[in-house]
Write a protein that binds this DNA or RNA. Structure first.
Length: 438
DNA sequence: TCTGGGGTCCTAGGACCC
DNA sequence: TCTGGGGTCCTAGGACCC
């Protein structure tokens, strides 16, 4: 089977540009939540030497000097662009796995080299025409090689954004012997140094070593990598969405929080947000972990992680119950005298909310009907009127703890209609896990 | 002054059982 | 002094990704 990885170029920056055509040719930088770090850069911004992940305050002057357009991240908008890109990709592929907000693996029947390249270019052109987003396409027999091919297509302008991993063995080995093993997908610092210690320096080295030998010093992860770079697929294209195993909602505070009431509000807010995600996926949670952290970058201050683990019996997706449980847990969790920088709620022990067990006499249903209804109504209103249109009083009115987002792109009416044009319902794309990233 | 927010998978080691 | 041998399940933490 032939596979492909389509990956949007400078995705968040490209979305900002698609929203505002006046930004053509202007360097663009998109900031993480709380306007903290650089998480996306247009080609022009990269050329200025603005590094990925840089704290914004370190590159602010550079941006001002060169007239860089700086935007706070707007995930709702990027999510809409993502949907349109993925729907377009799905029309071209036999199978598709949406791997993250800006990339997807696709599966095709076997094709000749010429056909594969032609297909890649037609997909790329179609996505650009329909969404304004440029994608790069890497074609290869396995996902790890697709990833590599994708990087090569980005590096070499001669490829025009589409690169096919050489099918000829000798040519492929020649290529792989020029690529360091630590640039592979799945090889981080730890694995790279272990591999080097055993003389595996290039991707070709990895492709030639016995997979069983690899296993002895790099585990099953190493073994799978070795097989994938040999052209033996270990990862399938996953069309079925696998149920998710955890949910996290957390944010940094715009300024440090020292008040117990503020922290409680923020945690109640995260509990409710996390419960929304639960309900969306038809899940209930058996465990909540509420946590707060001090600023790890402040070496002059004592550090603290405050945490409360709450077991929910029976498991629930009721945001009110969760918020109330957290408010109670604050007695145990609250430590006065610290400047809290970040807080959040983590949900675990997830299971389907569909009740499979018969209700025992005298115990009643797992979740009272009115509560379920209340959540349904809140979700419906928020879907209609916008996020947070209705919320729990315990999550606060003033919300002085809110993160910063001082450079949000204002949406025009035109964008709103584009949003309405979004196809609904039986789209062929099954969203698997969408991870908002970078 | 200012430094993000999600996820998954694997492994090692302890608890526990027979 | 010497003091089984497996197996499973769970959890914490590391590694990695976007």
């Amino acid at each position: 089977m032939l596979r492909a990885l389509a990956d949007c170029n400078n995705f968040f920056a490209s979305c900002e540009r698609a929203l505002n055509p006046a930004l053509q040719g202007v360097p663009i930088v998109v900031l993480s939540n709380n306007d903290g770090c650089v998480v996306a850069r247009s080609a022009e911004a990269k050329a200025l030497g603005i590094p990925m992940g840089a704290p914004f305050f370190q590159v602010r002057r550079l941006c001002e000097t060169h007239g860089v357009h700086v935007a706070s991240s707007n995930f709702e908008v990027y999510g809409d662009f993502s949907n349109r890109v993925m729907e377009t990709l799905a029309e071209h592929a036999r199978d598709i796995e949406v791997y993250s907000i800006d990339e997807a693996f696709m599966g095709f029947p076997d094709l000749t080299d010429e056909q594969a390249l032609a297909l890649g270019h037609s997909i790329r052109n179609d996505v650009l025409a329909r969404t304004g987003i440029t994608v790069s396409i890497g074609l290869a027999p396995t996902q790890v090689l697709c990833k590599l091919a994708n990087e090569l297509s980005k590096k070499d302008p001669k490829t025009s954004g589409v690169y096919l991993m050489p099918t000829d063995r000798t040519k492929r080995r020649e290529l792989l012997s020029t690529i360091p093993v630590d640039s592979l997908w799945g090889v981080g610092k730890g694995t790279a140094s272990r591999l080097r210690a055993y003389g595996v320096v290039t991707v070709a080295d990895l492709a030639e070593i016995e997979p069983e030998r690899i296993r002895s010093f790099a585990g099953v992860v190493g073994e799978r990598l070795a097989l994938e770079v040999r052209g033996v697929a270990c990862h399938g294209i996953v069309e079925e969405s696998s149920p998710r195993q955890s949910i996290l909602s957390s944010r940094s505070f715009g300024s440090p929080v020292t008040d117990r009431g503020d922290l409680t509000e923020a945690l109640a807010h995260h509990a409710f947000r996390a419960s929304e995600k639960l309900r969306q996926d038809g899940l209930v949670a058996g465990t909540i972990v509420a946590f707060a952290r001090t600023n790890r970058h402040r070496e002059d201050q004592e550090q603290r992680n405050a945490e409360a683990v709450i077991h929910l019996d029976p498991p629930t997706h009721d945001g009110r119950r969760m918020a109330a449980a957290i408010t109670q847990a604050m007695d145990a969790m609250w430590i006065p005298g610290f400047q809290w920088k970040r807080a959040g709620v983590y949900l675990a022990d997830l299971s389907s909310s569909v009740v499979t067990q018969p209700v025992l006499p005298g115990l009643g249903p797992a979740e009272p009907v009115q509560r379920r209804k209340l959540m349904e109504v809140m979700d419906a209103l928020n879907a209609e009127l916008g996020k947070d249109a209705v919320r729990l009083a315990s999550t606060g009115l003033e919300r002085t703890w809110k993160p910063k987002a001082e450079r949000l792109t204002k949406l025009t009416n035109k964008d709103a209609t584009a949003d309405e044009a979004k196809p609904e319902g039986d789209s062929r794309v099954k969203r698997t896990r969408i991870r908002f990233h970078e």
